[in-house]
Design a protein around this nucleic acid. Structure first.
Lengths: 354, 354
DNA sequence: TTAGCGCTTGCATGCGTATGCAAAACTGGC
DNA sequence: GCCAGTTTTGCATACGCATGCAAGCGCTAA
C-alpha cells in the first residue's frame, strides 16, 4: 500500500536559504524591493526559490509588517450593474499597487451588519463601503485602529468617514430643467431607501427646483434600490389620481423597472406618454431595450478617488475625512422626450445646453 | 503644541491577559470554540476584551494555524449579471462558515494571468474560478500546496481541477427540440469564446441534434461572452445570405445583445420573425424589456456545490477532482415562438413537455 | 485524610518574515 | 599591501496567536 503523499510543507525562506547557502534574512531581502543585497546573491536566491517553488508567505509578512495590502470592500446591491462596475474598477486599480479586495456582501442596512466588524480582525489596510453606510461603532473602532473608511455613493453624518459621490444636486437640477424643457409638467420621483441621503439629496434638489418654478408637488415613492421595489413604486405612482408624465429615478437600475412597468403594465409609450430618467449611466442604459436618458456617474472615477483618499489617509493618519464629488453629465437617449430647442449633436452624441 | 495621538497599538491577547489577570494562552482559548477553559474565566476575559476593544488578529492566527479562512475567487465577466449573482451566492454561503472572499478580477483568458499566482502567497484555503480557467502551472502549484481548485461553468482538460456546471448538453438539446417544435428551421448559434469548452459543448450538442434530424447546418458565430461581441456576432449572422429564424445564445447576456440588434438594427419582430433563446436565466431575463426564453442555470446551486467540493477536498486532501452538474430547466417566455402543442401552464408558469 | 481523577491553567515554543545592529567582505586610493 | 569607507551579510529578535505538555486545582471515593 503506497504511502500517502507527504503533506508536503510549503517551502519557506529558510528552505530557500539552505538551498542557496545563505541566511534567511538574505532571502527575505532578495524579495524586498530596495533592500540591501548584492545582485549576484539576489539572483542565486531567486534561482533557488524558483527551483523549490517558493512563494513569499504574505500572512507571515503581514504579521511582521502589520500591513496586509488587503482592502475590505463591503457592497450591497451587487445585482445593480453599477456596483458590479464599481467592484471591477476598484479591483483593477488596487491591483496596480499590489493590493487586493476582501469582499463583504452586505444588506443595504449595513448599519445593522455585525459581520463587518470582522474587517478589524482581518487587519485590512482600509475599508471601502459601496451602497452602504458604516455604523458609528464600526467607525470609531476603525479610527482607533487607524483603518481609513471611504463610502462610495453614500453620505454619512458620522465624522471620520470620507465620501466619494457623483453630482447629486446638480444631476437632479439638470434633470428637472431638462424635463421642463421637454414640456413635462407632472413629475414623480422614485427614491432608493428613505434613509439613503444620496437619494434624499437628489429628491430634495429635484423637488425644490420644481417647486421654486411653480410646478405642482412631485409625487415621491421609494424603490429601495431594488428592481421589484422600483416596480412597485412605479405602480403606486401611476395608479394615483394625479397624472404623471415624467419620472426621475434615483438609479438606472430602478429606472429599468419603471420602464418595464410603464410599458407592460400600463401600456404607455415612452417617451410619448411619459419620460423616464435615471442616474448612473450603466452600460445597460445604452442598450436598445432600455435606451435610457440618464445623468452619468462614472464608476471608474469614483473608484479612483476612493483609492486616492485611502492612500492619503494611510500616508497621513492624522488627516481628517474628505468629501469628493465626481463630475457627470446628462446623457440624452430615447427614454425622455427631447426639448425642441437647445439640443445639439456633437461628435455624434446628443447634448443639451440649457 | 499638543502631542500627536499616539499611534495606538491595537490591543493583543497579552494586553487582555494582563487586564484580566490571566495568561495569554487563556485568552487565546477564550476565543477558540471548544477549547478547554472554565466558563467563569472565559467571561472575565471576554469582558476585558470588550473593554479594551480587542479583536482577534486573524493574520497571526492564520500564521499559527496555517488556515486563513479565505477563499480566493477569480472572476471574469463581472459585468454579466450571472456572475454577479455567483459572487453574491458564494459570498453568502462562505460567510456561514466564517470564510471570506479574496477577489481577483481577471480577463477571460486567465490562462495568461500571472496575477493569479498570488493566491499562493496569500495562503488561501481554496481557489474558485468563475468564467475562467486555470493554467497547468497554477494547477500544479496549487496541488503542491494543497489548495483545491474549483471551476464554475468552465470545464478543464487539466487533471486535478474540480468542476461545477449546468446541464450544457441537455440544455442545448432541449432548446433545439423546443425551437423545432416552434416551427423553426434555420438555426444559428452564438458562442462565447471559441476555446470555452462550455460554449463548445453547447454548440456541438445543439448542432449535432439538429443535424441528426436533417436540418440544414447551423450558422455559428462567437460573441466572446461580451455584449458588444455578441452584437457583432448577431449582425454577422443576420447579414449572411441564408435566412435565420432562431438564434441560440450561449448566455443570457449575449442573448440580450442579440435581441437589441435584431430589433433595432434589423427591425425584426421577436418572436414572430425570429426567436432568441439564452442560457442562465439571470434576473434580467424575466424583465419585460427582454422577456427572454432561456435554459436556467441556478447560480445558488452552483455556488453551493462548489463549496461542498472545496470542503471535501480540504477534509480529504488526497481525494481526486470532482465534476458536478447542476440541474436547470427550460424557462418559457416571450422571446421564442411557442409550439402549438405540449405547452402547459402549471402554477401560472408555462412549461413545455416534449 | 488521602489517593486519584478530570478539568483548568500557564509555560514554552513554533508559525514565516522583517529589520536593527554589528560583523564581514569589498572597494579604491595611496 | 594597508586603511578608511561602503556594501553586503548574518544574528537575534519581534510580530500575535495556537497548542503540547506538565503543573495546579477542586472534588469524589475509599
Amino acid at each position: 500500500m503506497p504511502a500517502k503523499t507527504p503533506p508536503r510543507r510549503r517551502p519557506t525562506e529558510s528552505d530557500v536559504a539552505r538551498h542557496a547557502g545563505v541566511s534567511q534574512s538574505a532571502v527575505s531581502r532578495a524579495f524586498t524591493p530596495g533592500a540591501s543585497i548584492a545582485e549576484a546573491t539576489r539572483e542565486k536566491i531567486l534561482a533557488s526559490a524558483r527551483e523549490l517553488g517558493f512563494h513569499t508567505n504574505l500572512v507571515a509578512r503581514s504579521l511582521a509588517t502589520s500591513r496586509t495590502n488587503i482592502v475590505a470592500l463591503a457592497i450591497a446591491n451587487l445585482e445593480n450593474p453599477f456596483y458590479a462596475q464599481v467592484v471591477t474598477e476598484l479591483s483593477v486599480r488596487l491591483r496596480e499597487t499590489g493590493r487586493h479586495i476582501l469582499l463583504f456582501t452586505t444588506s443595504q442596512e449595513a448599519a445593522a451588519d455585525p459581520e463587518l466588524e470582522r474587517v478589524l480582525s482581518y487587519q485590512v489596510d482600509a475599508l471601502i463601503l459601496a451602497a452602504t453606510t458604516a455604523t458609528p461603532e464600526l467607525t470609531s473602532q476603525c479610527r482607533k485602529n487607524g483603518i481609513p473608511i471611504v463610502q462610495i455613493n453614500r453620505e454619512s453624518k458620522i465624522a471620520g468617514i470620507s465620501t466619494v459621490r457623483g453630482e447629486n444636486q446638480r444631476a437632479a437640477e439638470q434633470v428637472a430643467q431638462f424635463l421642463i424643457a421637454g414640456g413635462h409638467s407632472n413629475f414623480a420621483f422614485i427614491g432608493g431607501t428613505p434613509d439613503s441621503n444620496t437619494s434624499l439629496i437628489r429628491q430634495e434638489a429635484f423637488c425644490n427646483h420644481l417647486r421654486s418654478l411653480g410646478f405642482p408637488s412631485v409625487k415621491v415613492a421609494h424603490g429601495h434600490y431594488s428592481f421589484q421595489g422600483a416596480a412597485t413604486a412605479t405602480r403606486e405612482i401611476l395608479s394615483g389620481d394625479t397624472p404623471v408624465d415624467a419620472i426621475f429615478c434615483a438609479s438606472d437600475y430602478m429606472a429599468f423597472a419603471a420602464l418595464d412597468v410603464v410599458r407592460r403594465e400600463f401600456g404607455l409609450n415612452v417617451p410619448r406618454d411619459i419620460s423616464i430618467v435615471g442616474v448612473d449611466d450603466v452600460p445597460e442604459a445604452g442598450h436598445a431595450a432600455y435606451d435610457l436618458t440618464t445623468y452619468s456617474q462614472p464608476a471608474g472615477s469614483l473608484a479612483e478617488e476612493a483609492i486616492k483618499i485611502i492612500d492619503q489617509q494611510i500616508a497621513h493618519p492624522g488627516r481628517r475625512a474628505q468629501r469628493r464629488e465626481v463630475r457627470g453629465e446628462l446623457i440624452l437617449r430615447g427614454s425622455a422626450r427631447m426639448p425642441e430647442t437647445s439640443v445639439f449633436t456633437i461628435d455624434g452624441k446628443k447634448v443639451w445646453r440649457s
